[in-house]
Design a protein around this nucleic acid. Structure first.
Length: 269
DNA sequence: CGCCAGGACGCCC
DNA sequence: GGGCGTCATGGC
């Protein structure tokens, strides 16, 4: 990744990033595409850090109104710019199916998101569709002046007072997650460092967190690349292409491989 | 209108 | 330990 400062913007070159593939693939829900003719622009945020970003060409990006210090301290990390995805894809491509998936959407990256925001987001995601997940998270952040509420703020709410979210049966799960994180029963920073099976078990103590949501929190919110969320699409991939199991050589980065496979199978008609 | 959504829970056997 | 109905809401 190369970058340079240009006025109030940061100009970035990174061939292994595509905004549509990375920001709209179901790993993050707060990015909105701004209608435009030939360039792709998104507005979004994680926690309280907002950003407008454009892709002007393959591998070329503008981080609008971004201070160099913010770029270094926040966005290099968030976009995982210090990881070499070309190398990663070369490695994956040893496997025939993964090779196809990587060349199908080579601009996918694993975003390094916040664990708390991911926990709440993926509790909302259960038995839900992406447009409505985005709507619920929109209403949540709107309620806090465009910022994502921390656990202390959300712990002041109850399942009833969260009715404005129209999140259905998930409201009581959100309230329990907020209670457990606020009270310290759940320590997300410590869970992030645990052996993965212990981390899974700790996360599943929260109501509404089962195997799938726990795996998503580990992968998307804790950068545990060995986490491997299995939804209906990935189960389909495993049954069809990996009857003898997922290749061992990719186990450590299976979660990232999963992202390519997920996008590939969903868009293969 | 009915089907389904990046599931989890509770209850059943 | 696996199978199944239920849970709110709304996108398509």
């Amino acid at each position: 990744m190369d970058y340079r400062v240009q006025g109030n913007d940061i100009i970035v070159y990174e061939p292994d990033l595509d905004l549509d593939e990375t920001l709209d693939c179901g790993q993050a829900f707060r990015w909105k595409k701004i209608p435009s003719d030939h360039i792709s622009t998104y507005e979004g945020a994680y926690l309280n850090d907002s950003l407008r970003i454009s892709q002007t060409d393959k591998g070329s990006f503008i981080f609008h109104d971004t201070d160099e210090n913010d770029f270094i301290s926040k966005w290099i990390d968030y976009f995982d710019f210090e990881t070499d995805y070309s190398e990663l894809k070369r490695c994956f491509s040893e496997d025939e199916t993964l090779a196809k998936a990587c060349s199908f959407a080579g601009g996918i990256r694993l975003l390094r998101q916040n664990s708390w925001e991911c926990l709440i987001s993926f509790i909302i995601s259960q038995n839900n569709n992406i447009p409505r997940i985005k709507g619920i998270i929109d209403r949540l952040c709107e309620h806090y002046n465009g910022c994502f509420p921390d656990a202390d703020a959300l712990a002041e709410e109850t399942a009833d007072s969260l009715g404005y979210l129209r999140s259905g049966f998930r409201a009581k799960y959100l309230a329990d997650a907020a209670d457990k994180v606020h009270s310290g029963i759940t320590k997300l920073d410590e869970i992030a460092k645990l052996p993965i099976d212990d981390a899974r078990n700790e996360l599943k103590k929260i109501k509404g967190v089962g195997p799938k949501v726990a795996e998503c929190v580990l992968l998307f919110g804790m950068y545990r690349t060995d986490a491997f969320p299995k939804d209906v699409w990935i189960k389909r991939v495993l049954a069809e292409y990996y009857p003898d199991g997922f290749p061992e050589f990719a186990a450590e980065k299976a979660g990232i491989a999963q992202q390519y496979l997920f996008h590939y199978i969903r868009n293969l008609h």
